[in-house]
């Protein structure tokens, strides 16, 4: 009789499992299943517009990515270049903006300024792309109009392969730097004011404060922001769709757009899934390295 009675802890464990079941189901349906299906599809020759496709072809799609003069390979490199170029600028600018708002907290109009600088975050990337496409239009765009007014040479911007990719990076930074700035500002707010007071009392300058207080204290925030920004760059797709469609040539063909093109324009779904898996593995690996480094102390 005694053996059949469950302890409070056991009863709680059962309750916990029941309570967790819906969440786990959602996770299974929305997270694990699509992941498994993605990997499975990458091992087939599935073409949505071909009824006789869908055959299991082992690793052929992956081998093709390595052996063919694959455009996806150059798209991956382009995405890597995007990360290397955008992330440092994004973090430096984000830090400067966050410090500015920390310093100007009592200044009049700061609230308004903060709202304005957060504005790009509220716009969908597709709208941002269309908006900048008009601004950078060499013929009727406002940017060239300003250059003309200042007697500076007009630029082709999105029509020239030497300027198109920097433009894409610039538009990305315009939209997403406030996001990093916001995270950094939240991190700065958690640093005790006494540390700054002591540092100043010891005669520390801005650079010294940045190096000795802000960066070490913001390590986790910066690490998490870097992971989120990395994922955001890897997912950059609408911006390219609305501005250059990957051109001129292949100068702005980033990996997410290449995957979209293969999956939904060419209907090479097996190949697109293989590309998505490769991208996922690379992104996960980089994120893991970052996470391991940033969250080391917690472990």
């Amino acid at each position: 009789m005694k053996q059949k009675q469950k302890t409070l802890a056991e009863r709680n464990a059962v309750t916990a499992k029941i309570m967790l079941a819906p969440l786990l189901t959602v996770l299974l349906v929305l997270g694990i299943f699509p992941g498994i299906y993605l990997v499975w599809t990458s091992l087939t020759d599935l073409q949505m517009n071909n009824a006789s496709s869908g055959n299991f072809i082992w690793l052929s799609n992956y081998l093709a990515l390595v052996t063919d003069s694959s455009i996806f390979g150059s798209a991956l490199l382009k995405t890597l270049l995007f990360c290397l170029a955008a992330l440092p600028i994004q973090f430096v600018l984000g830090y400067v903006i966050a410090k500015f708002f920390m310093a100007a907290v009592d200044m009049k109009g700061t609230g308004f300024l903060r709202t304005v600088y957060m504005f790009p975050l509220m716009i969908t990337p597709l709208s941002v792309g269309l908006f900048w496409n008009y601004l950078l239009n060499p013929r009727v765009g406002a940017v060239n109009f300003l250059l003309q007014s200042a007697n500076l040479p007009l630029q082709e911007w999105l029509s020239d392969s030497s300027t198109a990719f920097p433009c894409i990076i610039g538009i990305y930074l315009w939209q997403w730097t406030p996001y990093v700035a916001m995270l950094i500002q939240a991190g700065l707010l958690s640093i005790p004011g006494e540390l700054y007071e002591s540092a100043r009392a010891d005669g520390a300058g801005l650079l010294h404060i940045t190096k000795s207080i802000d960066l070490p204290m913001l390590k986790k925030v910066l690490g998490i922001s870097a992971i989120l920004s990395l994922v955001q760059i890897v997912q950059t797709f609408e911006l390219v769709l609305a501005t250059t469609n990957g051109g001129p040539g292949t100068s702005t063909l980033v990996s997410a757009y290449a995957i979209y093109r293969d999956a939904f324009k060419y209907f090479q779904n097996g190949r697109a899934c293989a590309e998505a898996v490769v991208l996922m593995v690379i992104t996960t690996a980089i994120s893991q390295v970052l996470a391991k480094y940033v969250l080391k102390e917690e472990d």
């Binding site: 996770l27 929305l30 997270g31 694990i32 699509p34 992941g35 993605l38 994922v231 890897v234 997912q235 797709f237 997410a256 995957i259 979209y260 999956a263 697109a272 899934c273 590309e275 998505a276 898996v277 991208l279 996922m280 992104t283 996960t284 994120s287 893991q288 996470a291 969250l295």
Partner: peptide, 19 residues
């Protein structure tokens, strides 16, 4: 657990990536 969560999150995000 953290690794698993990260992989799952990236899985979903990458799958959603693939006029």
């Amino acid at each position: 657990k953290r690794t698993l969560c990260l992989v799952l999150a990236l899985c979903v995000m990458t799958a959603t990536a693939c006029g």
